[in-house]
């Protein structure tokens, strides 16, 4: 009888995720505009994709994005979380403030940064350049567009990591911290020899998730720059989306989706292993 309990979850999952995912694998080897009958085209989609310079720059952007997010928000989160552990008084207030950007919809966050900060007309950057500090809108320059978008996602994201690291740090046994303190450890030594090793599994998990999420990054790129200017901020997910819904080249979109999934798969392997290790105990 108990196996029936799983049925609703699995039916919904199969219909929405599994079956379409398998169809995507098939479509990657087909020529399809979304309307007519798909025709088998072998590796054509992949050939076209790999011959497209935009694909390689999108892939490079995903890798740059991953590197940024593996370092900056994790460092910010760890620094703030360790400070929260130190001060204790007010830590809850700061935690809630840091988490606020996480609960605000991505569209709203994107528009606030676009209009109120980056805009040369209505934003802070415009005000500062009128006052003589030349600040160009980063989203309008091919060389800075990706970083302009990444900054917005960083603002939206680092508080989440801080809250998670703080939760992990609070579970570090008190005796370990006291012992290090009696030995005369300073902040740096405390971090390096006691706190960081103690929350290593959590940091590992967050790094794996960062790699997976970095290849899924979509909302901010799509809303802020649509991948532009001149594809300079294009990432794989916006490239796939554009192929499917703007060019009606669903086969090639499916091929790009498979490339994204391939990177995700490596992360997923480590993620599942880490998560189930804990389940075994």
């Amino acid at each position: 009888m108990h196996r029936l309990y799983l049925v609703p979850t699995l039916i919904i999952n199969f219909v929405i995720v599994l079956v379409p995912a398998l169809l995507t694998v098939v479509l990657a080897f087909c020529n399809w505009d979304g309307i007519s009958t798909p025709t088998f085209s072998g590796l054509d989609n992949f050939r076209a994709l790999f011959a497209d310079g935009v694909f390689w720059s999108a892939l490079t952007n995903n890798i740059i994005w991953t590197c940024i997010f593996l370092v900056v928000p994790i460092a910010m989160g760890l620094l703030a979380a360790s400070m929260l552990l130190l001060v204790r008084r007010g830590s809850n207030f700061f935690q809630v403030v840091y988490f606020l950007p996480v609960v605000i919809a991505t569209v709203i966050t994107a528009r606030v940064w676009q209009g109120m900060i980056y805009s040369p007309v209505t934003g802070l950057f415009g005000l500062l350049s009128r006052m003589g500090l030349p600040l160009a809108n980063p989203l309008a320059q091919p060389s800075t567009a990706l970083f302009g978008v990444a900054t917005v996602d960083l603002w939206h994201w680092w508080g989440f990591l801080c809250v998670i690291f703080f939760a992990a740090l609070r579970q570090v046994p008190q005796e370990h911290i006291e012992a290090a303190r009696i030995e005369g450890a300073n902040y740096g030594q405390m971090m390096r020899y006691v706190l960081l090793p103690a929350i290593r599994p959590t940091i590992m998990l967050m790094m794996i998730m960062t790699v997976i999420w970095s290849f899924l990054a979509f909302d901010f790129v799509y809303i802020l720059t649509q991948g532009g200017p001149a594809f300079s901020s294009e990432v794989l997910s916006t490239l796939a989306y554009r192929h499917a819904f703007y060019d009606l080249n669903v086969g090639q979109a499916a091929a790009a989706a498979l490339v994204i999934s391939l990177f995700g798969l490596v992360g997923t392997f480590f993620y599942v292993r880490l998560q189930t290790q804990e389940g075994e105990q």
Partner: peptide, 13 residues
């Protein structure tokens, strides 16, 4: 951890 792009296109059509 499955990317939305892996299933959104066939799902949409």
């Amino acid at each position: 951890t499955a990317p939305i792009q892996l299933y959104i296109f066939p799902l949409y059509f």
